[in-house]
Amino acid sequence: MRLLAVLAFSFFISLPALAQQPIIVQPGAPGQATKVLPSTTRAVLPPLSTKDVEFMQGMIMHHAQAVEMTALIEARTENKELRLLGSRISQSQSDEMNFMKRWLENRSESTEMEMEMDDMEGMDHGSHSHLMPGMLSGKQMAALRRARGAEFDKLFLEGMIQHHKGALVMVKEMFDTAGSGQDAELFNFATDVDSGQRAEIKIMQTMLGKNN
């Protein structure tokens, strides 16, 4: 009797308390039961992979060359459409470089890629062509610097298409690496780079067709 009374009592006091307490649950796979988690549960981030960090570091370097290329436009062509395209690329890639640097800094990662000594050897400064897909070689950059007018327009468009296609390769390689691209901001950014650069490639291909 006494035990029952105690049980009944505790039932009455605990029920309202339980009703007010929000519950934290985690569903299972389809058809599986849902788990109840302790009220002390705190959020965790998905794993960050080495490839995620390398992707951001590499993309900063990659974007830097695009900005370098657009800086050549001013003195080399009067093509209004190209100048407009150049300012758009310059603006968006500069913004994105800032974003990437902040992303890395927030995760206390270096904004520059660590290079093996093997890579450093024989590397001529200012050219990282063998590092990131699509980047223009020192020779290509020199030709672009020398060109003027229509010749410049053509080399710029061809070079930027090659450059942008490289970014698509980088995004694909990152997502194709196990455990990569799970960070929400990185996912968002890489998705954005992919769709934005694809659209820009198409615009440049159209411009190139017109120029020829």
Partner: peptide
């Protein structure tokens, strides 16, 4: 996103260990 799992786990998917050079 890439971290979505059928079972709603918050673990995501483990990266491979860094490869040798």
């Amino acid at each position: 996103m890439q971290n979505g799992r059928l079972d709603c786990s918050t673990d995501g998917f483990p990266p491979n260990p860094p490869p040798a050079a």
